[in-house]
Design a protein around this nucleic acid. Structure first.
Length: 311
DNA sequence: TTCCAGGTACCCC
DNA sequence: GGGGTACATGGA
């Protein structure tokens, strides 16, 4: 059972690390109980992130975030074991990264109101949490994602990290690399990028890295603080960033939860289950704004996951 | 082999 | 502003 408390600045119940039970199980290994609305597969395989991988042997997930490598497993009693993680690291970093402070129960309840499609989708994707990801990594990852598929996207990103990311050392026998900074990527050649299987996206990535590294990294860092429209205008000015990539960046990297990215899968569910014309992107965006509002990003993620596995 | 993938830039009207 | 098309490449 979760304990919840009201915060003064946000009209929603919030949870803090103190509401969870954290016990040490060994060196850099902890068990956390009391986490609600969290499912590893639904969260890490719902298309929002590309550097988390399921370990086939035990169903746990290993991920690289910033300069940290971690393995998380979900236990039958509802607790989670974080390997390669201290209690302080959990409280200071992973708690926020995994968005554990948010009350998803309220969000789901609101979205489900008078919407049978959402009821199905939130039931199917129960336990999805929107990760609070890095802006730069999100931007480049979703430029890479365009007109590609998830296995290939993951492969390209790993290749990019391997040729230009900082080595982070070994974990369980494998070497891991950080996601490369704008400066590191801007130092690469088109041929380097081509070797990662990026195809025509190599040009976009190099251009964007140079732009951000040279003079506007300060601009990029403002994107969480300015209104969505202003952030969208700036981010779409980068080469290779159109409305879809921009919306993914805004949602997953800049934490603008009213963003509603529409890709082929979202078009599919919006036409088949909400009755829109296939090219009526404007109508779909307006529907999201009107019906899902500040929770549009959450709605999108439930719908996307449902569509990908069922349509 | 062919089709398709978390689209965008560019061109035309 | 809406509608076509080329773009690189690997996964299924």
């Amino acid at each position: 059972m979760l304990f919840k408390k009201k915060t003064s600045n946000e009209n929603i119940t919030a949870i803090t690390p103190e509401h969870l039970t954290i016990t040490e199980e060994g060196e850099r290994r902890i068990r956390v109980s009391g986490i609600d609305h969290f499912d590893l597969r639904h969260t890490f395989d719902c298309g929002q992130c590309f550097r988390w991988n399921r370990v086939p042997a035990d169903g746990s997930y290993t991920g690289v975030v910033d300069d940290k490598i971690i393995n998380i497993s979900q236990k039958f009693d509802g607790s989670f074991v974080f390997d390669n993680c201290t209690p302080d690291e959990f409280r200071d970093f992973w708690f926020d990264y995994l968005d554990l402070g948010r009350d998803y129960g309220t969000i789901i309840e609101t979205l489900n109101r008078d919407d049978d499609v959402m009821k199905t989708a939130t039931g199917y994707g129960s336990g999805i949490r929107l990760l609070r990801q890095d802006m730069w990594e999100t931007l480049i990852s979703f430029i890479i994602s365009q007109n590609s598929n998830i296995p290939r996207i993951k492969k390209s990103i790993e290749a990019l990290c391997k040729i230009s990311g900082r080595p982070l050392g070994k974990y369980k026998g494998d070497e891991y690399y950080a996601f490369p900074s704008p400066e590191r990527i801007s130092g690469l050649t088109i041929e380097d990028l081509d070797s990662c299987g990026l195809g025509y996206r190599s040009r976009y990535i190099l251009d964007t890295a140079k732009t951000v590294a040279e003079d506007v990294s300060i601009e990029l860092n403002r994107m969480r603080d300015v209104p969505l429209k202003e952030a969208e205008e700036y981010i779409t000015s980068l080469n290779g960033v159109g409305p879809k990539v921009a919306n993914c960046f805004l949602l997953f990297g800049a934490w603008h939860y009213e963003a509603f990215p529409i890709d082929v899968w979202m078009k599919r569910i919006m036409t088949e289950l909400y009755g829109f014309r296939e090219n009526d992107l404007k109508g779909m965006q307006k529907y999201a704004a009107d019906h899902f509002g500040k929770y549009s990003g959450f709605a999108q993620q439930y719908l996307f996951f449902y569509a990908r596995e069922n349509l």
